[in-house]
């Protein structure tokens, strides 16, 4: 398995300049994929919820509370992923959600923090492409593009090949190599690597939202 995420921002900036909405851009992308010969294969969904470390458990040393992200991916319907930023990624059964309710005293869910991306799955030869609309609350915030090339298990091996594929439907708006596989050169790609990329993408989109808010103040 070998997914890659495009930076949602860099993709959505293109249509904004041309005065197009997120929805129109998604349609443009999927039309290009279909022209390429990709076949529709159902839908997908990735969601992410943020948890704070509860104030009562923080020591008096003034250490900052860490953020924990609990994520689900429809590609792995029986799993639940719990990630810390720059930290370990835990892959658990879906029962983990129930456990989080019990751990209320230690981890509190941040209000209105749920962010998710939904869209269509496309298959083109051995490529799996997922174009999704990232939504936070009621509004669409950006577009995520995930490309997975199943036959190759080492991310850095097939990066040039993926880049060529991305250029065929994204044009010049292709991203740089994801940071995930810069540090581990020949490690076998795992589902957790995908989730880390989605977490980074979601965080980036969240920050984009905060910047204009601060400017208004």
């Amino acid at each position: 398995m070998r997914p890659f995420l495009l930076e949602g921002g860099s993709v959505s900036q293109m249509p904004v300049a041309e005065g197009k909405s997120v929805q129109q851009t998604v349609e443009l992308l999927t039309r290009k994929l279909e022209m390429l010969g990709a076949e529709k294969q159902g839908t997908f969904c990735v969601d992410c919820e943020t948890y704070h470390t509860a104030a009562s458990t923080l020591g008096s040393q003034g250490q900052a509370g860490k953020l924990m992200y609990v994520m689900h991916n429809s590609e792995y319907p029986l799993s639940c992923f719990a990630l810390f930023e720059n930290g370990p990624c835990l892959v658990a059964d879906t029962n983990f959600d129930v456990l989080m309710v019990k751990l209320k005293g230690f981890f509190q869910s941040a209000k209105a923090s749920k962010i998710e991306t939904r869209g269509t799955r496309y298959q083109y030869c051995d490529f799996l492409v997922k174009v999704g609309t990232v939504t936070m609350g009621p509004s669409a915030r950006g577009i995520s593009v995930e490309v997975e090339y199943g036959p190759c298990v080492v991310a850095s091996d097939c990066w040039s090949l993926l880049l060529e594929f991305l250029q065929s439907f994204l044009g010049s708006h292709t991203p740089g190599a994801p940071t995930v596989f810069g540090n581990r050169h020949d490690a076998v790609y795992s589902p957790a690597d995908t989730m880390v990329q989605y977490m980074e993408l979601f965080n980036k989109i969240r920050k984009q939202q905060q910047v204009p808010v601060a400017g208004i103040r």
Partner: peptide
């Protein structure tokens, strides 16, 4: 297999295959 471009056309992919 996934790292060598074609020696004739110089590309990686043709009809979705390396």
């Amino acid at each position: 297999l996934f790292q060598a471009p074609c020696q004739r056309c110089g590309k990686f992919l043709q009809d979705g295959l390396p």
